[in-house]
Design a protein around this nucleic acid. Structure first.
Lengths: 157, 157
DNA sequence: TCGCATCGTCAGCGTCGCTGATCATCTTAT
DNA sequence: ATAAGATGATCAGCGACGCTGACGATGCGA
């Protein structure tokens, strides 16, 4: 009855791929994100929303542009993102008198409340994921990921 | 001009986020993928294309469904993906006499050639990224990522 | 004042995950 | 054998996202 190669449970990822750091990184990130989003679903926010809230709460009166820079989210994507956050009543756009082009994005008290709860979920998800690593190596891994995420081997234009 | 590098001004990623394993994972994965895609751009293929090629070469006569299962790509997305690979002359769809519903996806010689070259680029990108990790921890990290991602490898025993 | 950069916005393109439907085909229970 | 159910590929369509290019409004240096 064997028709198309091994059954799904005996997945035959070629070693190139199964051992591919990039592939693993991407699938692991996806898994963690899904896990997180499952837990914060009840707050009606996405992982991205939480990221913005986190930046905004920790650093009030940033413009959309700055937030996007920090999170590496495109400026045009930030528009809709802040729109939805505003629509959810989690942040507000405030006109800046000294620079009437930009807004100051501020978290509402509801926004801060949601963030607080989401961070609890985040901590749980992350500790679950990190528990799969030897305890002594967790810090080193995070440092390495920071560097990797920051590397620009080609001309930063 | 200087659009990257250290955070501009005083605004900084809050510790919640900067230390967030999920955030780091996702940004690191993105960085590695971009890096890889920059290098294989000249082959006119994407990272995804290379993933499919890798699976297909290592395991001929898989159906689209099986390939998608291995790579965690949705079945409906696989259609366009194989379409483009076929359009590039890198794989072929072959009708299966024993099951006329599905195709056997096979790499062409051109497909194998492109994969071979792409794997060289992949190795370079990955070793660059991994070089940021203590050598002794690289294996542990990859195994942990496998677990986090929920990936099964047959070589795991 | 003029020229240029910056901020937010919008339209539009391409990719991707996902739902749901369809058609052809295979399998299984009766 | 046949009907009922699964399965593979495909398509239409939705929403999210990255990104380009254009725009108006505004700030700022020469």
């Amino acid at each position: 009855m064997k028709r198309h190669g091994p059954p799904a449970g005996f997945a035959v990822l070629p070693p190139d791929l199964a051992g591919s750091f990039g592939f693993l990184l991407s699938k692991a990130a996806e898994a963690v994100r899904r896990n997180f989003e499952e837990r914060i679903e009840r707050h009606r926010v996405s992982a991205r929303h939480v990221g913005v809230l986190s930046v905004v709460v920790a650093n009030p009166s940033l413009s959309q542009r700055r937030i996007g820079d920090l999170l590496r989210v495109d400026r045009t994507t930030m528009v809709a993102l802040i729109d939805s956050l505003e629509g959810l009543g989690l942040v507000t756009r405030k006109r800046v008198p000294t620079d009437r082009r930009s807004f100051e994005i501020e978290a509402t008290s509801k926004g801060r409340r949601v963030l607080e709860r989401a961070l609890v979920d985040a901590a749980r998800v992350e500790s679950e994921a990190l528990s799969l690593l030897p305890p002594g190596e967790r810090r080193a891994l995070c440092r390495a990921l920071e560097k990797i995420a920051g590397i620009r081997t080609h001309a930063a234009r």
